[in-house]
Design a protein around this nucleic acid. Structure first.
Ligand code: SF4
Ligand code: SF4
Lengths: 165, 165
DNA sequence: CTAATCGCGGATAACACCTATCCGCGTTCA
DNA sequence: TGAACGCGGATAGGTGTTATCCGCGATTAG
C-alpha cells in the first residue's frame, strides 16, 4: 500500500480512519454500523472493525449489538480530543523506551545516579508531552468545524442524508 | 530483546545509542573508534556501526579511516540538538502519513477543498512540530551537564582516562 | 613493504508489528 | 426464525527493526 521508502517514528494508518469515523459519528443521529463507515471512506470494512473495537474498549464509542446496531460517540464531540483517539488506537506506550545502557560497560553509572531518569530520557519524555498536549488541545468538534470551512456549510447535511439512506 | 508487548508510535532503539555516543564524543580529545563506543556502552559493535554511519551521512560526526581512525563531532556539542540525532537515525519522514481518504467513498471531497491539508492532518503536523521544537531545544552539551549533575563532577575525567587506555 | 586497524556498504536472517481477511459466536430486532 | 451487527480469535503477507557477517578501500605502526 505504501510505495515510498519510509523510516522512523511512525503512526499507524488506522489512526486516520478512526479520527474520520469519530467526525462522522459526531454528525449522526443514531448508531452507525461499521459497514456504513467503511463504505463512506472507501476503506476495508473488516480492518476498520478492528479499530472501532479499540475505540469501544477505550470507552470513546458505545457499541450497540443486534439488528440495527452500530456505534455512537460516548461523550459529546467537544469532549473527545484527537489524543484520546490516538491513544486508543496506538496504545499508551511512550515512543521512547529506555534500555538503561548507562548501567553497562566498564564505567557503569552508580545505582544512586540511576534513581531518576537521565537527561536523555527526560528530554525525550518532555518532547512526547509536548506532542500529547498539542493533540489534546484539538477536539473532534474542532475538526468538524474545520470540515465545514474547507468543504462548505452543507457538507454535513449531505452526510446525514446519505447515512439515513 | 523486548519482552513486553508494545504498540503504537515507537522510536528506534538506535536513537538512544546514538545520543549517548554523541555525549561521549563531546568529551573525547581525538577520534573514537566504533569498537570503543560499543565497549563503553556494552552494546553490539556491528549494529552500532550502522547507526554511526547514519550520523556520518547526516554530517553530525566526521569519520577518520585507517589505523587510528574513529569518529569526531563535526560541530561543537552546543550546536548539535537531540533532534538532529533523532532525524539522522530515524529519518525525516513525518510520523503521520495522510492517505487522503476524504477523496474516497460516495461523498468525496471536492478538488477545491483538497487544495490544502485537512484539519486532521493539520492537527497531527502541529503536534509533530511541537515535538520537534522540544527536542531541538536540547543540545548534546546540555545532556553532558546533566550527566555531571547526576553522576558527579569527575565522571568525564574517568571517561577520558578510559578512552586513553 | 607488510600487516593490523578501521570505516563503509551490501547481503543476510530472525523477529516484531502493521495490514488485511476470514470465521464462528452471541446479540438484537423485524 | 432469520437477517444484520459487534466481538474475538486465527491466519497470512508485507514491512521495518535488530543484529551479524563479509569484502573492500583507506591509513598507519612496525
Ligand atoms: S542515560 Fe538515559 S537514555 Fe541512556 S540508558 Fe540511562 S536512562 Fe536510558
Ligand atoms: S481529511 Fe485530512 S487526514 Fe483525512 S484523508 Fe483528508 S487530508 Fe488526510
Amino acid at each position: 500500500m505504501y510505495s515510498r521508502r519510509m523510516a522512523g517514528v511512525k503512526m499507524s494508518g488506522g489512526v486516520e480512519w478512526a479520527v474520520h469515523c469519530c467526525v462522522v459519528l459526531s454528525q449522526a443521529d443514531g448508531p452507525v454500523p461499521a459497514q456504513r463507515l467503511a463504505e463512506f471512506h472507501g476503506i476495508s470494512r473488516t480492518y476498520l472493525a478492528k479499530h472501532l473495537q479499540h475505540l469501544s474498549r477505550a470507552g470513546l464509542v458505545t457499541s450497540t449489538e443486534g439488528r440495527i446496531g452500530g456505534y455512537v460517540l460516548t461523550r459529546p464531540a467537544g469532549e473527545i480530543s484527537v489524543l484520546d483517539v490516538v491513544l486508543a488506537i496506538e496504545g499508551r506506550e511512550p515512543a521512547f523506551r529506555c534500555t538503561e545502557i548507562r548501567q553497562n560497560g566498564p564505567l557503569p553509572a552508580s545505582p544512586a545516579a540511576c534513581r531518576r531518569a537521565c537527561g536523555v530520557a527526560r528530554a525525550m519524555h518532555a518532547a512526547e508531552r509536548a506532542w500529547r498536549d498539542s493533540l489534546g488541545a484539538v477536539t473532534i468538534a474542532d475538526l468538524g468545524e474545520g470540515v465545514l470551512e474547507d468543504a462548505g456549510p452543507d457538507t454535513f447535511v449531505h452526510l446525514r442524508e446519505w447515512l439515513g439512506t
